[in-house]
């Protein structure tokens, strides 16, 4: 197990390192260097001499790899630069918005599990019936439906037609727990749909595979009821491959948060990222890219660790 964990950690760090290089290169690809971009926003800087001064101050005249090392060092020490749009420190901006997005993530995972698990289990137990076919079609639809269209349909139904939920906006929990709940209900549902579809499909196939195993027959031969077989003997081995789906689906959830926060006007990290793209606010874009990768890699690391814990063949070697 120790070797397994060490391996996963090493992999995560290698990929993070590569991501930092990729992001650094991408940021250089953005039209205009950051100083010019800043100059475009802040007219006081539109003086060539000042710009040259700033270039030297920020090290932009040095060779690329030196720039990279400096940039990486600063980034790790928490100096993520200053937003060209708001003038705020990017590090502070990020952690101010993080809780909002985390809340949204939690909500979407909740929806995914709440819908995906029962559907997947149900269709596995009623395999090859019309119910199974319905669930499978629903699941593919859930996986395919674009976040933005689903959002629009829900807004149209629940805000425009029925006036049940707010069409947009975010209420902090401290201000009004109920308002917070209703403001996140639709966005988190939309973000969770893809995961729900994936869960339903994977749980179905995984459970079907497990239920066909010899050890399930052994369990039945002991005199266990079908329910006890399902809960005591099938659930755990069936869950192991499903855990990896979380890693697969997470990229979608994160990407979804960008569109959803934009649509529903939620002041989280996704909204910050989209705004930064509009403004070519490159320190924010850089931070967004890196932290998104950190997010996805961390979740995948967690998934691998849970996988290792669930499967004794990995845990005890």
């Amino acid at each position: 197990m120790k070797r397994y964990i060490a391996g996963r950690l090493l992999y995560t760090f290698v990929i993070l390192f590569l991501v930092s290089i990729l992001v650094f290169i991408l940021a250089r690809l953005l039209p205009g260097d950051p100083i010019q971009a800043a100059a475009m926003i802040n007219m006081d800087l539109a003086n060539q001499e000042i710009i040259q001064d700033l270039r030297i101050r920020f090290g932009l005249d040095r060779p690329l790899y030196v720039q990279y090392v400096i940039w990486l060092r600063d980034f790790i020490s928490g100096d993520w630069g200053v937003s060209l749009g708001s003038g705020e420190a990017v590090f502070d901006m990020f952690f101010k918005r993080l809780p909002v997005t985390l809340e949204l993530f939690a909500g979407s995972v909740f929806w995914s599990c709440l819908i995906g698990f029962p559907l997947g289990i149900l269709s596995a137990l009623r395999r090859n019936t019309w119910l199974d076919a319905m669930v499978t079609a629903t699941a593919i639809t859930g996986v395919s439906i674009p976040v933005f269209w689903e959002g629009i349909v829900l807004i149209y139904l629940f805000s425009v037609v029925f006036h049940w939920l707010p069409a947009a906006g975010f209420v902090p929990f401290a201000e009004s727990p109920l308002g917070n709940f209703t403001s996140l209900l639709m966005p988190s549902f939309v973000m969770g749909t893809h995961g729900a579809g994936l869960f339903a499909r994977y749980i179905r196939s995984s459970l079907l595979e497990v239920l066909g195993q010899d050890y399930i027959r052994t369990a039945r031969a002991k005199g266990l009821s079908e329910k006890a077989v399902l809960i005591g003997h099938a659930a755990k081995p069936a869950m192991i491959p499903v855990v990896t789906v979380v890693g697969l689906a997470w990229g979608y959830v994160v990407a979804g948060s960008f569109i959803v926060e934009y649509m529903f006007a939620i002041p989280g990290l996704g909204r910050m990222g989209v705004d930064a793209v509009f403004l070519r606010d490159f320190p924010v874009i850089q931070a967004t890219l890196i932290m998104t990768a950190v997010n996805v890699l961390l979740v995948n690391l967690l998934v691998d660790l849970i996988y290792g814990c669930l499967d004794p063949r990995i845990r005890i070697q």
Binding site: Y215, K222, G223, S225, L310
Partner: peptide, 27 residues
């Protein structure tokens, strides 16, 4: 089915052919 469950593994038990796959790997 419930009465049969009290017979299986209690009054009547069975051993299968494949020892490698007849035990649950995660328990």
């Amino acid at each position: 089915e419930g009465e049969m469950g009290r017979v299986r593994g209690n009054r009547m038990a069975m051993i299968f052919q494949e020892p490698m796959t007849s035990l649950n790997p995660v328990l």
